[in-house]
Amino acid sequence: MEFCKAAKTECDKIIAKYPEKRAAMLPVLYLAEKEFGHISPEVEKYVGKLLDVPPVKVHEVMTFYTLIAAKPRGKYHFQICRGLSCDLKGCVKIIDYLSEKLGLSSDETSDDLMYTFTPVECLAACETAPMMQLNEDYYGNLTKEKIDDILKENS
């Protein structure tokens, strides 16, 4: 388990920015997630080695943040908002509908590694509530029909 040459160079650059190696934990984890898909226990140990900290310190950070994947994620990652504005605009029905369509409940990934379904807190786009994020893109003013279209486009 090791970074490829390019990623290792990138990692060294990140570490060099900080007065101590440990401070580079979040950006290095982000890089590791991009490289390895998710942060497995082996990756945790590798990151620990890169930053000169015991693996338990990496695990502390990993469990504190929800943003870095500890398990493999699907090709399509649905992060659907359950914040206050979206709730007021009826996101509960949309969340249930998407969950049913994907056949996944909260925080699950399909066996074929195509889809991951994660209800999340506010994504700061209340003006388009109810909304969700699919991989890097925002989709707003969601309706059941719109969900159907999005699923058709991304399958």
Binding site: P54, P55, V56, K57, H59, E60, T63, F64, Y65
Partner: peptide, 14 residues
């Protein structure tokens, strides 16, 4: 961490 330097324990989740 500091006395035995064995690092078995951590504070997890949030």
């Amino acid at each position: 961490d500091e006395i035995t330097e064995t690092h078995e324990l951590g504070i997890f989740n949030r």
